[in-house]
Design a protein around this nucleic acid. Structure first.
Length: 414
RNA sequence: GGAAGCGUGGCCGAGUGGUUGAAGGCGCACGACUCGAAAUCGUGUAUGCAGCAAUGUAUCGGAGGUUCGAAUCCUCUCGCUUCCGCCA
C-alpha cells in the first residue's frame, strides 16, 4: 500500500497513476476519512492523557472516591470514541489497500495494446512442433490421467519431460546462485496477511486466482513471490545487509478462471506448475538498478538456452497493483508465430514492503520502508513448451541445449 | 489429535495491578584513557501515530474482557517447548 501522507502530498500524481492503471478509487474520500481519523485520534489521545494522569495521581493507593469518579467519567467517554476510531482506521486501511502503486515516468500509458517492445534477441524460427502433440506422442505428458485424478488442467510428466524439467531446474539454480541469490524452498501456502500484503486479491474478491483452504486462514501460493515477500515481514534490516537476494523454488497454484480465449493449450496454462523465482529486498535508491539486473539474468538464461525472445515494457494498464514498472520477456513461438509470455520482472518499490512492514535501518539510524522486486528465473512448465517448440523435430528427437546436458547425463538428445 | 509449560526491547533476562517503554546484563554506537589496540570508565541505544515543535499517545505474541488504573487478573486465539498418541 501507499503511505497516506504521500497520497496527501501527491494527490494529483496518485489519482493519475490510479486512473492509468485502470483502477477506480476516490482519493478525495480517502483523504477526508484520514482527516476524520486524525481529529478523532487527537481527542482520544487527550482523553487517554487525562486517564493516565488520574491513574498516576492514585499511585499512593489511597482510594479517593472523587478521583475514581473522575476516572470513570473518562472511561465512559473513551468507550464512546474508541470503537468509532478503530472503525474509521479499518475503513481507511481498506481504502488504502485498494490504491495501486504509482507508476514510473517511463512506463507507457494505456492498456495491454500499449506495451512497448524495447529489445529483440535471436532468430525467429519459421516452424516448430506443437508441444502437446509431441509430448503425448512420446508418452511424456498425461493430461487425461491428470484430469481423472485432480481435474482439468492437471497433468503428469513422465520420462523425457520430467527429466528435462529437472535439468532446467538444476541449470536455473546454478545460474541464480552464481548471481548471488540464496536458493530456497518455501512454504506452498501463505496466510491472508501475506497474500494481501503482496498485492494479490483477497479471498473475498471475485477476481482472486488462488485456491483457499476451507476453514483455515491459508491460500495455496500462486508464486514463490508470496512466501519470499513474507520472509522478512515485520523486520528491520540493517542497510549493510542489503540487497538480500533469494531464489525460491516452489509449486504454483492458479485457478486461471476466465482465461478462455487466451492461449491455454497443453502445459502453457495449467492449475499447477513449478517455478524458480528471484526476489530482492533492497535500498530504495537501488531498486531501478536491481530491476535491470533481474532482467539481465532472465535474458542470460534464455540466451544460454538459445531461445529467441523480445522484451516489452508493460503499459500502465498491464502492470497490476503492486508494480511501479514491469518488464515481460516473451519467447518467439514458432508454432503460433508470435511472442508469448515466458518470464516477467517487476519493481514493486515500497508497495509490498509497506503493507508487510519491511524496513531498513540506515547507517545513520533512520528507519524507512525498503523496496522489493521479483522476477521469474525459470517457469518450468512453460519452459518445457518452449523447449519442445524450438528444439524438437516432428516424429523425431528433442535436441538438448548444451547448457542442460550436464544434468541429463551428457546426452545431446532425448 | 490429547496434556502441561512458556511467549517482555537486536539478544539474554527481571518485573507484589498504580511514573514500567519497561531493572540488570550482553551486543552495538560515540566519547575518554592509549603510540595504537585490548581492558576499563562515561554517554547513548525500540517502533508506530498526532504535532512546526515542546510534547502527547499506543505497543510486553494477537484479539476481546475486568478495573479509576493491566506486561501483571480473566476468556479466546496464534506460536514455541516437552510428554503421550499417530503417521510419512
Amino acid at each position: 500500500m501507499l503511505d497516506v501522507n504521500f497520497i496527501r502530498q501527491n494527490q494529483a500524481l496518485v489519482e493519475k497513476s490510479t486512473r492509468e492503471k485502470g483502477y477506480d478509487v476516490n482519493i478525495s474520500d480517502l483523504l477526508d476519512l484520514d482527516d476524520k481519523r486524525k481529529s478523532l485520534l487527537q481527542s482520544v489521545d487527550e482523553l487517554r492523557r487525562q486517564r493516565n494522569e488520574i491513574a498516576s495521581r492514585m499511585k499512593g493507593g489511597k482510594p479517593s472516591a472523587e478521583l475514581i469518579a473522575e476516572g470513570k467519567a473518562i472511561k465512559d467517554q473513551l468507550a464512546a470514541k474508541e470503537p468509532e476510531l478503530s472503525k474509521i482506521e479499518s475503513e481507511l486501511n481498506t481504502l488504502l489497500k485498494s490504491v495501486p502503486n504509482i507508476i514510473f515516468d517511463d512506463v507507457p500509458l494505456g492498456g495491454e495494446e500499449a506495451n512497448l517492445e524495447i529489445k529483440t534477441w535471436g532468430e525467429k524460427k519459421k516452424s516448430g512442433v506443437d508441444h502437446l502433440d509431441y509430448a503425448v506422442s512420446r508418452g511424456w505428458v498425461d493430461f487425461e490421467r491428470g484430469a481423472k485424478v485432480a481435474g482439468a488442467k492437471f497433468y503428469y510428466l513422465k520420462d523425457g519431460l520430467a527429466l528435462l524439467e529437472n535439468a532446467l531446474l538444476q541449470f536455473g539454480i546454478k545460474k541464480v546462485t552464481e548471481h548471488g541469490f540464496h536458493f530456497m524452498t518455501v512454504p506452498d501456502m501463505v496466510s491472508s496477511r501475506v497474500l494481501e500484503g503482496c498485492g494479490f486479491n483477497p479471498r473475498s474478491s471475485a477476481q482472486s486466482d488462488e485456491y483457499f483452504i476451507e476453514g483455515e486462514d491459508l491460500a495455496m501460493i500462486a508464486t514463490a513471490e508470496m512466501p519470499l515477500t513474507g520472509f522478512h515481514m515485520d523486520e528491520i534490516i540493517d542497510e549493510k545487509d542489503l540487497p538480500l537476494c533469494y531464489a525460491g523454488y516452489s509449486a504454483c497454484f492458479r485457478k486461471e478462471a476466465g482465461t478462455y480465449g487466451k492461449y491455454t493449450r497443453g502445459l502453457f496454462r495449467v492449475h499447477q506448475f513449478n517455478k524458480l523465482e528471484m526476489y530482492v529486498f533492497c535500498l530504495p535508491e537501488k531498486s531501478q538498478e536491481m530491476h535491470e539486473q533481474l532482467l539481465a539474468i532472465e535474458e542470460e538464461i534464455l540466451q544460454d538456452l538459445g531461445v529467441p525472445y523480445h522484451i516489452i515494457s508493460n503499459a500502465a494498464g498491464d502492470l497490476g497493483a503492486p508494480a511501479a514498472k514491469k518488464y515481460d520477456i516473451e519467447y518467439w513461438s514458432p508454432v503460433n508465430q508470435k511472442y508469448q509470455e515466458i518470464t516477467s520482472c517487476s519493481n514493486c518499490t515500497d508497495f509490498q514492503a509497506r503493507s508487510l512492514n519491511i524496513r531498513v535501518r540506515r547507517q545513520d539510524g533512520t528507519v524507512e520502508v525498503l523496496h522489493t522486486l521479483n522476477g521469474t528465473a525459470i517457469p518450468l512448465a512453460r519452459a518445457l513448451v518452449v523447449m519442445i517448440e524450438n528444439f524438437a523435430e516432428l516424429d523425431g528427437k528433442l535436441h538438448v541445449p548444451e547448457v542442460l546436458r550436464p544434468y541429463l547425463g551428457g546426452v545431446s538428445e532425448l
